[in-house]
């Protein structure tokens, strides 16, 4: 598909010059990093809350269950926008070797393509797991878009449009920075949350949140929020054990 960039090689060129590059490889300096991560996660989490609360003020009859699609799209939009903004401002992204317009454009196009493919992928997986195929396809697709914005978008922000790097991040020794570790944690939490969200659906409790796909999307959002909280904390408490490959 595309060339594997050999991430060990360009470890030093990996982060833009605004940061002290060496800080990523020296555990003592991580504190700074973890603080940055915690605050960015706080911003993202508050955006999810805002996306739930603000429309309720402006739109009559807005509720998480009742107008679920609306809530889904507002959360998706808020998370995407805030994620992109935060990571762009922090400058955590794939180094651009070339600065030509064409190269940037092709990266943009590839990113959009990957996002679309990821939506389709999630949609397929969810249908295979037993979601209705034809009826409520719109709901299923909204869930897929939400999952994409929670997982794939973050991969894209941290690693750039590089599928091989994405796959490699999710291995035991694949993380090369604290941001990679937090990526692992949040993505795993969102996906597991969505998976667990499917569990109450067959129960005969007749609650509004058992309707497809409310429980799954709630599960994934809750999982994502948990991941946002857990990731900095976990890294903070395990910073002695964590070693990243770049020296």
């Amino acid at each position: 598909m595309n060339v594997n960039p050999r991430r060990e090689d360009n470890c030093f060129s990996f982060f833009p010059s605004t940061f002290n590059l060496r800080s990523f490889c020296i555990p003592i300096m991580w504190d700074h990093e973890i603080k940055a991560m915690a605050s960015s996660h706080a911003i993202i989490a508050s955006s999810v809350f805002m996306a739930t609360v603000v429309p309720a003020v402006f739109i009559r009859g807005f509720s998480v269950y009742g107008t679920h699609l609306l809530w889904l799209s507002s959360v998706t939009g808020a998370v995407s926008v805030v994620n992109v903004a935060v990571f762009w401002l922090l400058g955590i992204s794939q180094p651009t070797k070339k600065h030509t317009i064409g190269y940037k454009l092709s990266r943009l196009v590839r990113s959009c393509l990957y996002l679309l493919l990821s939506c389709l992928f999630y949609h397929t997986v969810v249908v295979l797991y037993g979601a209705p195929l034809i009826e409520s396809a719109l709901e299923t697709f909204s869930l897929a878009v939400l999952l994409t914005s929670l997982t794939t978008l973050r991969c894209l922000c941290v690693l750039g449009p590089n599928v091989q790097a994405w796959i490699r991040v999710f291995s035991r020794h694949g993380a090369m920075s604290v941001w990679d570790t937090s990526l692992q944690i949040t993505v795993a939490c969102s996906v597991i949350g969505a998976w667990l969200g499917a569990f109450p659906i067959p129960l005969d409790w007749d609650r509004p949140w058992q309707v497809w796909p409310v429980s799954c999307s709630l599960g994934s959002v809750i999982g994502y929020l948990t991941g946002l909280v857990v990731a900095p904390a976990w890294i903070h408490f395990h910073r002695k054990q964590l070693t990243y490959k770049c020296k």
């Binding site: 594997n4 050999r6 090689d9 091989q164 796959i167 490699r168 999710f170 291995s171 035991r172 020794h173």
Partner: peptide, 16 residues
């Protein structure tokens, strides 16, 4: 997923 987590799904990278 687990195979990948254990780093066995993809060929290991060379470390020059």
């Amino acid at each position: 997923v687990r195979l990948n987590w254990e780093g066995r799904l993809l060929p290991p990278l060379h470390d020059p």
